[in-house]
Nucleic acid binder design. Structure first.
Lengths: 205, 205
DNA sequence: CCTCATCCTGACCATTTGGTCAATATTCGC
DNA sequence: GCGAATATTGACCAAATGGTCAGGATGAGG
C-alpha cells in the first residue's frame, strides 16, 4: 500500500516525497486546492519550489497523489464491519472509529471535504466506482442484518451517509463547533457519548 | 433586512449589486473564495470586471457582504422553534425545514461550508457571538423540554450539531451522495424519511 | 435640450503563481 | 577517489488575477 509498483525509490526520493505530501496535506486541507500554493507546500516540506516540482511534475499531480494515497486510510474503517459480529456493536464500533479519525486526522477529513465540495474533479471515477462498490457491500451486510430483524428498519445507504456526516462534521466544522460550545468543552469526548446514544436508539429493534 | 441604513440606492445600483451578489454566490460556492475570480463573478453577473469593482471595492468586500446578507436566511429556521409547541414536532419541523434548505439553497450551504472549513476568517466573530447566542437560546428551550421529560435526554448542543451535519451533508456532499446512490434515487426525498425516523427514535421518551 | 451625477469601459499595472531550465552540488556505486 | 546518476537551486518566464484610472456613455432633473 505504501509503494506503487513503479521504479525503486532512493532513500532521498522516499524521504522528500513523503515530506512534500505531508506539507501538501497541511496546505491543501487548510486552504483548498486553489488556495494552497506550491511555495507554501515547499516551505512546509522544507524544500525549494523547483525541488518540489522535481519530485512531482505539477501541483495537480501532488494533489492527486495525495488523494489516492489517503483514500485507503480513509475508507479502511468501513471494511472492518464484520458480517458475523453483533450488528449494533459493529455499527457502533464503525461510528466510534470514524469519529476517532476525525479527531486524529482532521486534515485528511478536510482534504476530502474540499474535494467533494468542489464537485470531486479528481475523485469522480472513484466515487462512482470503488467507493460505490464498497458502499454496496456494506449495504448488503446491513440489509442482511435488517432482514434478520437484528437491526431496526432504516435505509442502509442513508445510515452510512449519516455516519459520515455526523463524524466528519466534527473535523470539517471544528471551528464552528468550538466557537458555539465555548471553552471548557471536549467536543470529541461529548460526541462519542452523544453518537453512541444516537445510533443505539436509532438502530435498536 | 434587505437594505442597510446606508444611503439610498438607485434602481441601477440595486439591480447590479444584486446581480453581482448572485453571481458571486455561484462562483464562491462552486470554487471557494480563492478559487473564484472577479472575472468569473463579472461574467455570471453580466457585467465587466471594472464595473463589478465599481460597486464593490474588492473581492473581499463582495464575499463579506454576501456572507452577512445570507446569514439571516441561513439561521432563520432555528428561530422558528416554538417553545410552546410539541417538542418532537418542533424539532422534526426544524430538521425538515433545514433539509429543504439544503435542497433549495445548496449554493448557500456550500458557501458557508467553504468558509467554516477554511477557519471562518470572515465569520469568526459571528460564530462565537451571534450564532453562539442563538444556539444558547435554542439549547435553553431544548433543555427545558428535556427537563420536563418531553424529550429524551440528549446533549442539546450536539443535537443541534447533528441536525446541521445531517441536513447540510446532502447539499455540501451532493456529488458524493449521488455517485454512491447511483441513478434512480431522490436523495432528498429519501433523506426526509430517514431523518424523520432517526430523530423520532432518538428523541422519543 | 442642457447639466450634472451616475455608470461603464478599455487600457493598464503590480503581484502572485505554476512551471521551466541551465548550471551547480551532492550522492552513490565502483 | 572518481565518474555517473541523482538532487538542488537561482534566475527566469508566461499566464492569471486583483485592482486602478482617465475618459467616455448614459441616465435623471430642470
Amino acid at each position: 500500500m505504501t509503494d506503487q509498483n513503479g521504479p525503486q525509490l532512493t532513500r532521498i526520493q522516499q524521504r522528500n516525497r513523503e515530506r512534500i505530501l505531508e506539507g501538501a496535506l497541511t496546505a491543501f486541507s487548510a486552504n483548498g486546492f486553489r488556495g494552497a500554493t506550491i511555495d507554501q507546500i515547499a516551505e512546509e516540506a522544507g524544500l525549494s519550489k523547483p525541488n518540489v516540482l522535481y519530485y512531482f511534475g505539477s501541483k495537480d499531480e501532488i494533489h492527486k497523489t495525495l488523494l489516492t494515497a489517503l483514500l485507503d486510510l480513509w475508507l479502511a474503517p468501513m471494511l472492518s464491519l464484520d458480517p458475523d459480529g453483533e450488528p449494533l456493536d459493529e455499527v457502533l464500533r464503525y461510528v466510534s472509529t470514524k469519529l476517532d479519525m476525525s479527531r486524529d486526522f482532521p486534515r485528511e477529513s478536510r482534504l476530502f471535504a474540499y474535494e467533494v465540495l468542489q464537485g470531486a474533479p479528481h475523485l469522480s471515477e472513484i466515487l462512482g466506482g470503488r467507493l460505490r462498490d464498497l458502499v454496496d457491500e456494506t449495504v448488503a451486510v446491513l440489509t442482511g442484518w435488517i432482514d434478520e430483524g437484528r437491526l431496526a428498519k432504516v435505509d442502509p445507504h442513508h445510515l452510512i451517509f449519516s455516519i459520515w456526516a455526523l463524524t466528519q462534521h466534527y473535523a470539517d466544522f471544528e471551528v464552528q463547533v468550538r466557537a458555539v460550545l465555548g471553552p471548557g468543552h471536549d467536543p470529541y469526548a461529548e460526541a462519542q457519548v452523544f453518537l453512541e446514544n444516537l445510533f443505539r436508539r436509532m438502530l435498536a429493534t
